[in-house]
Design a protein around this nucleic acid. Structure first.
Ligand SMILES: [Mn+2]
Ligand SMILES: [Mn+2]
Ligand SMILES: [Zn+2]
Ligand SMILES: [Zn+2]
Lengths: 145, 145
DNA sequence: ACCGTTTTGCGGCTGGTTTGCAAATGACGG
DNA sequence: CCGTCATTTGCAAACCAGCCGCAAAACGGT
């Protein structure tokens, strides 16, 4: 809680109700949430959707929140754990949208080699896995097309 | 050319002007192109933007074209090389949007282990790298903020 | 050349995201 | 505790990639 206040002060940002509420929602969920979902979890009367968008953008800029892209045209956000770097990936079921947190990561040495070879600096990556979860696979055992 | 015709026939699709023109554009570029870019390359008078969208969707469904997502809310497409699987990734400069084709891929065995552990089937991944290219790094040597 | 199917152009529409602006609200010094 | 000022919010409109419906045009097989 003090962490948030400190981070906000550092950027001359204010500790507002919506801000705290949004972070509280993210704290309660350990999976990426869409703006709309956060807004719903807040109670639609609690704050405007545009405010959710603006705050997530701000919080992302301050490094308190990280943006994920599952390729469906909707941004999702997760709280960055205090102190930790928090870099990780996801495995998403293409049928039911189940999300599994994934610690496996692209080999550091490969990434560095790649950067060196092409003279790139500040290299990062975006990596997500997709497939069919056990439940969905059972419900649809190889469609007879 | 005959490859295209054969593929289209197999799906009872027609060999139309826009279709051929789009594939010709993709053949000339070896990097992912956005719908808008393809449309422009075609000459805006040549065919409607909606037609470009529809055809890329169709061609993707037939496996002639592959969709890429650089996380900027714009889909990009690349021709799938004849016969080959064509799976690969990209390294994108966040400053100038320069695109480098990347053959490095997430280790197959890690992906399989991940799938097994969570009972997922038909697993795939989306992986793209981001950074600052040499040219942009030179033009902006550690901004004095 | 004819006919049934597919495709196209065009306009309108969607859903996620951003923005302009005036009112509301935090931060801070007195 | 209060006033001031920058930041933030609500609201509505704008934006933007992508999608859809429909009538006209183009294809493919005959
Ligand atoms: Mn996560
Ligand atoms: Mn490529
Ligand atoms: Zn990683
Ligand atoms: Zn790969």
């Amino acid at each position: 809680m003090g962490e948030l206040t400190a981070a906000l002060r550092k950027h001359s940002r204010k500790v507002t109700g919506p801000r705290q509420a949004i972070l509280e929602v993210l704290r309660r969920h350990q999976h990426p949430l869409a703006n709309r979902e956060i807004h719903r979890a807040l109670g639609p009367e609690n704050c405007d959707l545009a405010t959710v968008y603006r705050n997530l953008h701000t919080l992302e800029g301050m490094g308190l929140v990280r943006r994920y892209d599952f390729g469906d045209g909707t941004a999702r956000f997760e709280l960055v754990p205090e102190g930790e770097e928090g870099h990780h990936h996801h495995l998403i079921c293409q049928q039911c949208a189940l999300i599994v947190e994934v610690e496996e990561c692209f080999p550091e040495e490969l990434e560095q080699a790649l950067a060196r070879r092409h003279g790139f600096t500040g290299i990062t990556h975006r990596l997500e896995f997709f497939g069919l979860c056990p439940r969905c696979a059972a419900a649809r055992p190889t469609p007879a097309d």
